[in-house]
Design a protein around this nucleic acid. Structure first.
Length: 215
DNA sequence: AAGCAGATCAACCGCTCCACC
DNA sequence: AGGTGGAGCGGTTGATCTGCT
């Protein structure tokens, strides 16, 4: 009984849900002064009513200064698809090849954009392998992806140059994006350009306040 | 303008792995 | 060798946004 009360009291003390700007600032300031460390004790020391896990996630996915916000570019999209073909849902591994992108972001992107189109295409046609053709990388408006019937013809579109990998993607070990069976049947899909995602407060806001606090 | 449905994404949850004792 | 705690990962949820009627 007492234990239950104690637990529920602890649960009340742990905040969940969206982070406030104040919490963000506390976390940023603390890490700026003390560095990343043991997250549970960091959360306690910083005076945040959050779990270490929550702090870690917030820092890695949002607050780190090197996190890139905004649209996934066509180049990044290609890399994601290639590496997903290679490794499957190893999001953190894929994220390592996309500097500034987080595993969470890539995972969400895959599930909400790419997988959706694959499912839709699944209902339309048949094919077993993928061919990726970046139709208009320069304006980043649309990207066409084609899946062909023959495994042997799975390769980058011959009329297109290889993707301009400016990331540490290892082209020497590059293998064509042959998709596993459950990704069959995609014939041609196009993605509209991403919308910019405005947050309640921008990272520029946070970092400008952080600079002021640091002075 | 209001209501609804689908899309998006931040955050949480549960699990596994690994290092340390 | 086994236990424990922290870190990291992938899956899922739920709030919010957006576009359509």
């Amino acid at each position: 009984m007492d234990r239950n009360m104690c637990n529920s009291q602890q649960e009340v003390d742990v905040r969940k849900g969206p982070w406030t700007m104040e919490e963000d600032l506390i976390l940023i300031n603390y890490i700026a002064n003390h560095g990343e460390g043991v997250w549970n004790s960091l959360a306690r020391s910083a005076g945040l009513k959050r779990t270490g896990k929550s702090c870690r996630l917030r820092w890695l996915n949002y607050l780190r200064p090197d996190v890139r916000r905004g649209n996934i570019t066509a180049e990044e999209q290609l890399i994601i698809m290639e590496l997903h073909a290679k490794w499957g849902n190893r999001w953190s591994k894929i994220a390592k090849h996309l500097p500034g992108r987080t595993d969470n972001e890539i995972k969400n992107y895959w599930r909400t954009r790419i997988q959706k189109h694959i499912k839709q295409a699944d209902q339309n046609g048949t094919s077993t392998t993928a061919q990726i053709c970046n139709s208009n990388i320069s304006d980043h408006n649309h990207m066409i992806i084609k899946y062909h019937d023959q495994a042997s013809t799975s390769h980058m579109c011959s009329s297109c140059p290889p993707p301009p990998h400016n990331q540490p993607f290892d082209q020497t070990t590059y293998s064509p994006p042959t998709y596993p069976g459950n990704l069959d049947n995609l014939q041609a899909i196009s993605f509209p350009a991403d919308q910019s995602n405005d947050n309640m407060w921008s990272m520029e806001d946070i970092w400008s306040v952080q600079m002021l606090n640091a002075e």
